[in-house]
Lab assay of single mutants.
Amino acid sequence: MASQGTKRSYEQMETDGERQNATEIRASVGKMIDGIGRFYIQMCTELKLSDYEGRLIQNSLTIERMVLSAFDERRNKYLEEHPSAGKDPKKTGGPIYKRVDRKWMRELVLYDKEEIRRIWRQANNGDDATAGLTHMMIWHSNLNDTTYQRTRALVRTGMDPRMCSLMQGSTLPRRSGAAGAAVKGVGTMVMELIRMIKRGINDRNFWRGENGRKTRSAYERMCNILKGKFQTAAQRAMMDQVRESRNPGNAEIEDLIFLARSALILRGSVAHKSCLPACVYGPAVASGYDFEKEGYSLVGIDPFKLLQNSQVYSLIRPNENPAHKSQLVWMACNSAAFEDLRVLSFIRGTKVSPRGKLSTRGVQIASNENMDAMESSTLELRSRYWAIRTRSGGNTNQQRASAGQISVQPAFSVQRNLPFDKPTIMAAFTGNTEGRTSDMRAEIIRMMEGAKPEEMSFQGRGVFELSDERAANPIVPSFDMSNEGSYFFGDNAEEYDN
């Protein structure tokens, strides 16, 4: 993207840094990872977990959730003011799984939030270390993106479920800051804005008074975040219109849905970061690795190297396929839920299948599930090659597409044709070009129609051997075009429920 120079890199967003050079960025990201790792080690000690239990991804998720809940100030305040039966607002906890007599047992633990905050700050040299908290939120978000298709949420806001490739980060909490905003897809931002506008339509006082002023500035800020994701002048001009509207209503909703559809071809720039579970960072720190000293990046080879040398386990339900569970977590670790499966298959070195073909449910185990038949197995999170994460949407291309997802959002900077089903997408653009945004709409449609099938995206960008740390010898991959490109292809993934 041309304006790259004016933006802070995501590592800076990730670490609240002012302008830093590459070495400083690597050190501050490393410091953040160190903090998460030290916190995780301490929690495993508190909970008396064995090494194996500490490497269980379900335990990692519970521990991450506990610290996120302990620092969720708004919710904590709300819980104190609106006490609900049987919930102690000062405590947080969740299921911890232990191996007892050759069987997995679930144990519900409860801790004072104050105590968890103390352990977290102690692991982070006394700081609140917001960057580390956001990092864990993005890992949870990436896992949700890989596990669930947001059909219901899309339909509720009037969008087409086939636009799911635009929904990265749709389950990120509001408090995820600049680093969170960077990884949100165009569809996620559109959905947040539509929800806001709908509230304004239904509630006369939404934009009024002292609160209304705050609401208005939040609305304009979200519009600017979305505008910054678009790469064409016409899309940005249309966002200006939406932002400046005196009284946002149905016309703005129409414009936003139009823009979301246009992003299936004229893709937005959305950041991709490899955020790993805390149970990967903990053992690495415990083994003596100093992330701050060595430096770390979320968008280069580092996460690949770390996963190459990590042992992570997962509980497996009786009829689940461990290899499929591994694929789910591998995609989440690489922030690749909406990437082209052919690119992923090449990088991973084994075939990556669409969601609907995987015999696996989510990673988390519900409290009512029976533990008797639970097994555990090693997650295979290694890769054959590594590639640089991208934040450009890439230019655009036609490809055989599917009944489910009709476009992709690249996660890796790797040369390819970008699949999208042009006739299906263009069919949504018939007729409606009147109104105050008509010239911009016409211009956007013209650009979409001009998108050429034979153009290559990320020209000359390749993948790298894991021994090639400096990215000196790019390998331009070859793809098996007979395979499906979309992950949520004609899909039956479970729906995400809060």
Rank of each mutant, 00 (worst) to 15 (best):
residue 73 E to C: 06
residue 146 T to K: 07
residue 103 K to Q: 07
residue 313 Y to Q: 14
residue 133 L to T: 03
residue 267 R to S: 00
residue 199 R to G: 05
residue 147 T to G: 04
residue 336 A to E: 00
residue 378 T to D: 08
residue 71 F to K: 13
residue 146 T to H: 04
residue 294 E to C: 12
residue 222 M to F: 13
residue 490 G to D: 03
residue 242 V to M: 15
residue 402 S to I: 01
residue 264 L to C: 07
residue 77 K to T: 11
residue 327 Q to Y: 03
residue 219 Y to T: 14
residue 481 M to E: 08
residue 392 S to W: 09
residue 126 G to M: 13
residue 107 E to H: 14
residue 50 S to F: 13
residue 259 L to G: 14
residue 341 L to H: 05
residue 323 A to W: 00
residue 384 R to Q: 04
residue 142 N to W: 10
residue 460 G to I: 00
residue 21 N to R: 12
residue 415 Q to E: 00
residue 17 G to K: 11
residue 309 N to S: 13
residue 417 N to H: 11
residue 440 M to W: 14
residue 147 T to R: 04
residue 135 H to N: 11
residue 325 K to V: 06
residue 472 A to Y: 13
residue 332 A to Q: 08
residue 17 G to S: 07
residue 387 A to S: 15
residue 485 G to H: 02
residue 105 M to K: 10
residue 298 L to D: 11
residue 482 S to K: 07
residue 9 S to G: 01
residue 275 C to F: 07
residue 247 N to W: 03
residue 184 K to C: 07
residue 255 D to P: 10
residue 71 F to I: 01
residue 13 M to A: 06
residue 120 W to T: 02
residue 14 E to K: 15
residue 292 E to I: 13
residue 252 E to K: 06
residue 71 F to C: 03
residue 451 A to W: 13
residue 341 L to R: 05
residue 123 A to P: 08
residue 186 V to W: 00
residue 312 V to K: 05
residue 370 N to L: 12
residue 480 D to N: 10
residue 115 E to R: 11
residue 278 A to I: 14
residue 104 W to Y: 11
residue 226 L to N: 08
residue 408 V to A: 15
residue 237 A to S: 15
residue 2 A to C: 01
residue 411 A to W: 03
residue 80 E to K: 11
residue 287 S to I: 06
residue 445 I to D: 02
residue 438 S to R: 01
residue 133 L to V: 11
residue 153 A to F: 12
residue 246 R to I: 02
residue 364 Q to R: 01
residue 65 R to A: 07
residue 161 P to G: 14
residue 71 F to N: 11
residue 296 Y to C: 10
residue 89 P to V: 15
residue 447 M to P: 03
residue 82 H to I: 04
residue 143 L to S: 13
residue 38 R to D: 11
residue 34 D to S: 12
residue 203 D to N: 08
residue 208 R to I: 03
residue 290 D to N: 14
residue 32 M to D: 04
residue 28 S to C: 11
residue 272 H to Q: 14
residue 290 D to M: 14
residue 309 N to V: 02
residue 304 F to E: 08
residue 428 A to Q: 10
residue 52 Y to R: 07
residue 322 P to W: 08
residue 296 Y to A: 15
residue 334 N to E: 10
residue 24 E to M: 05
residue 469 E to S: 10
residue 415 Q to S: 15
residue 425 I to A: 15
